[in-house]
Write a protein that binds this DNA or RNA. Sequence first.
DNA 1: ACCTGAACACCGTTCAAGT
DNA 2: ACCTGAACACCGTTCAAGT
Lengths: 226, 226
Amino acid sequence: MSAQGETRRAPLDRARVLAAAVAAADRSGLDALSMRSLAAELGVVPMALYKHVADKDDLVGGMVDTVIAGYDPADAVGGPAEVRARIRSARAGLLAHPWLRTAIESRTRRTPAVLAHMDAVAGAFLRGGYSADLTHHAMHALGHRIWGFSPEAFEEPPAEPPSPAEREAMLRTMAERFPHITAIAMDTAARTPSGTCEPEGEFDFTLDLLLDAFERLHAAGWTSSA
Amino acid sequence: MSAQGETRRAPLDRARVLAAAVAAADRSGLDALSMRSLAAELGVVPMALYKHVADKDDLVGGMVDTVIAGYDPADAVGGPAEVRARIRSARAGLLAHPWLRTAIESRTRRTPAVLAHMDAVAGAFLRGGYSADLTHHAMHALGHRIWGFSPEAFEEPPAEPPSPAEREAMLRTMAERFPHITAIAMDTAARTPSGTCEPEGEFDFTLDLLLDAFERLHAAGWTSSA
DNA sequence: ACCTGAACACCGTTCAAGT
DNA sequence: ACCTGAACACCGTTCAAGT
């Protein structure tokens, strides 16, 4: 019997598993996606998935990376125009995949694709002549709702480094692959003794910025007809 | 044996169930909170909870309401000062209950406590002399990250009204209990034919507002020393 | 190397019954 | 009115085994 009546199924690999998961979530939402249902869809026993995915968290993380990796590469002109283009890409991803927002919010680990997108947006500001300091604030202010993923990723401790040597190596690869966010992190570290930025300060900064902007519009007699 | 060796447990009620759930989530997170574990903590069989809570969704909704209902009542001075005070309350709630953000984001129904908080913030803008239109934009721009709950609640269809008469009654109670958000909704409905606001328009409005604000800071040579 | 089978320790929720 | 017991239809994940 075995592999004859049916044409033999191509062997699974990570990309195929992730693509099927993305398609399934697009169709019926993230809640309906289980290891078991995904396996059934791939014509495989649930445990077969664990050869290509560490666990469910890794599956969801991979789905997020798959979508982010497909964002349009914007022209690297720098400044607000490039920022706008990159944010539009993220926005399009959120609209095309309704589960994406929840998936991103449920994750805490910063994957390479997430870091790359952050780095690209930070780079757009820096190339536009913004200081590392102002860029840092802008990244926070643009925030979760506009980004599609949490700027708090900036703040979280980067998963305790096993040894000083490994820490050194990690820093070097960070600086190579994600030069812009590394530069911003180092700028922040140089200015604040603890090396982490103050969440409450950031919160106040953005809140004041927005309230001031609306005060200005109000004072100018703004109406939607404009 | 029965109720003698132990002093007889006070009978459960919804408030006690919700308080225990909030405490449990504060202690060990939302993921660790199950109907079964909560029941065990209350010294009761899982099914006993279903007398006080419709299902798990209702439990989480009740937890959110419990926290929001405890927000500081701000002075009704109106304008940015009151807005700031109310947003600080929401922020404090998010800091005190790390699970709150996720819990709010997972919910889609607008509960009375959520509506009351929205109404209070909207009222602060309106009392400050802001137009309904500008208030609407400001509410969206302040957004999820600052609010602690989704301004998209504004946009979602309000759970199809069973009959015209009931719809009428619902509108009247809305206008009574939440006058400010009702006024804004009616203003929006009057200006846009469909009655719903354009998500993409809102997105662009906020994005431009933020990018313009940062352009202004950049042009002014802003540094964090200020 | 890749997949399977059976099992473990969980879930939320139902139904009919107890007091 | 409030709570219980037993059951149902699910989960994610383990381990040892198959090919």
